[in-house]
Design a protein around this nucleic acid. Structure first.
Lengths: 260, 260
DNA sequence: CGGGACTTTGAGCAAATTCAACCATTGTGG
DNA sequence: CCACAATGGTTGAATTTGCTCAAAGTCCCG
């Protein structure tokens, strides 16, 4: 895990910006989608003063369950998995976090879960203490945080419904459908799905073994619902069919985090 | 579902208080444990002005998923279950809420889940709009809400670990152990467990069928971990053994909601 | 080109569900 | 006050879904 002074490395340069070099937050790609968006114009400098960009390589650990919860992160680019483990090694991945998602948000002394990078990930790191001070100062920011955690709670409930009630086929179909919705929301092609995580991650997220995930996917391929280019890249051939198989509720708001 | 003017009915009178009759919030039994505790002295009158006490009979519905989210509730006494359903009737109970817990906290237009009373329940109801105005005025209240939803998120993650990874025996043992911890926290005997919900509720909470819940409990009885007085009242005979069977993590903070 | 990590596929197995019958408790009407 | 229907809970046997164990296949990277 490497730390970067803002505006120095290759990865940094991959992030589009137009503002002054000494205030990268002002031009951050994810600013409007995250808590940061609550601060406007000149206020954003306050955030920038406590922000540190951090790069985490694929498979590296950001923090472990039980570590002192000193920092809060925002994913700038890449993918993070958060998970809890049982003493014997069983693992439940409780979420995959992407661009603009927050990691480590917990008003407790210690993290209640671990976080690893799925792929190379660039994050913005804030000391908890400093961020809390800003919250005192800017109630708009606090309101936004409340809205974010309320959305997270809603998708946690969706995930409980999936884990507790859905069959293997429904679980996998729901997972793929959700990835498609996320791509759509980001303005990408919702039919081309790139899976940055491996089968064991998908299994531990859905409460299934890797074998069941694999078998279910080939079954979907044989049924013409999807087709794969490689094991981590595929095409959704029948979105409606996938939603049907997944018993997905399309009636209203998307469960992928929307910032209100 | 009946509404009560504060300080009128039998149930109301069952709540201990000492303050003036026209300001029941000031003397509410759960005040210090809930958001309400953020307001002190004279401020509490503001909350009282928008609060309405509501009584919901066992089995009655408080609201349904998709209803306009006009109100937020605090459980004064009794038990509420919140749940989501699939089109074919499968149901996942995502939580049981007890004294001082909040129900319906969602910064969205519509409730993302349904809520039914498990037993006769007394609640305090606030219009969402009015409560949000108070939040603007009293940041301390907003901070408290943030802390509450952060705790809820943590226990949602515990529940995902349970649903996705634990065996039937572990699930049931964890459930009983958690009830015991809750009783302890409330100052009650942690070995006497009263189950206000029926087997189908427990099953839908743990992602198991009623038969499996029942079989697992009799197995626990035969192993000497518990003993029952009736089907809804029993005694924990071997707390350590129960925690062991449940693969419960006792290392730090309780996952039952603690208000920070 | 070789080796390691990840994925797929297959066969047998086991945990939990389904289906079915029976038991216990409660409340109601004759 | 008892009969009996209704609701909820327990127990048993058969079935099924998803898991375990095992082997082979694929991809990537040095």
């Amino acid at each position: 895990m490497t730390e970067l002074k803002p505006g120095v490395t290759d990865l940094m340069d991959a992030i589009p910006r137009s503002g002054p070099l000494d205030n990268p937050c002002a031009a951050c790609a994810v600013r409007d989608m995250s808590v940061c968006g609550a601060l406007k114009g000149n206020e954003i400098g306050r955030l920038n003063a406590i922000a540190v960009r951090t790069n985490v390589g694929a498979g590296e650990t950001l923090f472990l369950e039980g570590d002192a919860a000193d920092h809060i992160y925002v994913v700038i680019d890449g993918c993070i998995k958060i998970y809890k483990m049982l003493p014997d090694g069983r693992r439940q991945i409780t979420g995959f976090l992407y661009q603009s998602d927050m990691v480590g948000l917990a008003f407790r002394q210690r993290y209640a879960f671990s976080a690893d990078a799925v792929s190379n990930t660039l994050l913005c790191r804030f000391p908890r203490e400093g961020l809390e001070k800003l919250l005192d100062e800017f109630p708009e920011m606090e309101r936004r945080l409340l809205s974010i955690s309320s959305n997270e709670l809603a998708s946690a409930q969706d995930q409980m419904l999936l884990l507790g009630q859905k069959t293997a086929a429904e679980k996998v179909a729901t997972f793929l459908w959700l990835l498609s919705r996320r791509a759509e929301l980001k303005g990408a092609d919702p039919h081309k799905i790139l899976l940055p995580m491996m089968r064991s991650d998908i299994g531990d997220y859905l409460g299934l073994t890797i074998e069941t995930v694999s078998r279910t996917m080939t079954q979907f391929r044989k049924r013409g619902l999807i087709s794969f280019t490689s094991s981590s890249l595929f095409q959704i051939e029948d979105p409606a069919g996938l939603a049907e198989v997944g018993s997905v509720d399309e009636s209203w708001e998307a469960s992928v985090a929307l910032i209100g």
